[in-house]
Design a protein around this nucleic acid. Structure first.
Lengths: 221, 221
DNA sequence: TAGATTGTTAATCGATTAACAATC
DNA sequence: TAGATTGTTAATCGATTAACAATC
């Protein structure tokens, strides 16, 4: 049985399904059809059924999908049924903001350490976790199982520290630095490039304006 | 002359080209061919040429692309040649982290106000800008031109405030709240759903493990 | 001019949507 | 059983890659 590769596009949509299903649970909705869900989410029913069927038949003909069951199943697919020990590397504003993000904990992402290069920050406690100096990191990784490292260091330091993380067995890096890390293929890298997101917004803004300056031309047609 | 719609996929790649070109400028590289750039960026040369030709012929046969010229042109396409006045709505950890992000300023994104609902924060200054109470926002928007609002409020407050922003003429929302805003089509919304990004990482991590637990099966083939 | 490399058309590949038989 | 809705195959659409003539 070949492990059929699931496309990145599908995977990116899973968390959004998960979110909507969570909301439906809060509203005490017990079942939903792909048709109804598609209206809520502004996607096609076909896409929902195709996406889900990559992972198995979660629905039932004539009935639809059981909301709670589907929620749990997608949770499992996303790996939210296990605890993921996590460290933050870079305790600046963004690092600290993420440390304070209690939602992650709920989903099994457990913060176990915070590290920085700046001695001024040493010992300062964020959400009960003291900031440690980065030279203690290799030892820490030997003694504590860590799956995910959140990399919130400025870009000139990020590349170097990424290598330390990888060398010491971290299996995934959530990268907020504005660089492309070149990690071996057994290390997962997920990038959050905020400035690129803002530029995309800026593009759309500029584009919209251009189109509407040209509204006069439309009247000629 | 019809305004041919440019695909979202292309637009998302533009900031990355921009970033690599910026690096090339720092390395004093004057020109580059699509072939060489493709190796650096791990994409196909074909894609680079196709992408760029959506916006015009920036290169020259037999020569390649002038790095500085292309950098400037992509900057213009992304709207980085103009100033975008910007406010932050939600002065929690993330809001403050973004306020402290000096890189945005360099690209023309100028922070002109910070707002929150929490009276404890009133008057506290972040990067020289005092946090204001959110009820002063409509008046502020009347007196100050604001293009972009960064929405870093918890989700239950975010929807409501998004409506206030839209009603008062904000043209774009950079949304960090875990909800889908339904804005009119003349308001640009760019979402940064951090928890969804982390779930994608978690999926890839779990998936990788599953595949490598099954490595034993591979030996049977 | 000859060599290099673009701009662009054509071919391929993958993702989305539509359709419908299977089935609860 | 009849109606509803899935799971899945087939059709369409769009994006990526390959190829090459145009041209610097």
């Amino acid at each position: 049985m070949e492990a059929k590769e699931i496309s990145k596009a599908v995977i990116k949509r899973l968390p959004r399904y998960y979110r909507y299903l969570g909301e439906l649970i809060e509203e005490n909705v017990e079942r939903i059809s792909s048709g109804d869900l598609s209206k809520k989410m502004h996607v096609t029913a076909s896409q929902i059924r195709q996406d889900l069927n990559n992972f198995g038949g979660f629905g039932q003909q004539g009935y639809g999908y059981n909301v709670h069951y589907l929620y749990m199943e997608i949770g499992k697919i996303l790996g939210l049924d296990t605890i993921h020990p996590m460290i933050i590397v870079g305790a600046g504003n963004l690092g600290q903001a993420l440390a304070n993000y209690s939602d992650f904990e709920k989903r099994g992402f457990r913060l176990v350490g915070i590290f920085d290069v700046n001695p001024v920050l040493e010992g300062i406690s964020v959400r009960g976790i003291g900031i440690q100096m980065i030279n203690t990191l290799p030892e820490f990784l030997k003694e504590n199982p860590v799956e995910i490292a959140i990399l919130t260091l400025p870009k000139h330091k990020a590349k170097e520290m990424a290598n330390v993380l990888i060398k010491n067995g971290v299996k995934a890096i959530w990268n907020f630095a504005h660089i492309d890390l070149d990690a071996p293929e057994d290390v997962i890298v997920e990038n959050v490039h905020l400035s690129e997101s803002l530029m995309t917004l800026s593009y759309n803004l500029s584009q919209y304006r251009k189109e509407h300056v040209e509204e006069k031309k439309e009247t000629e047609n």
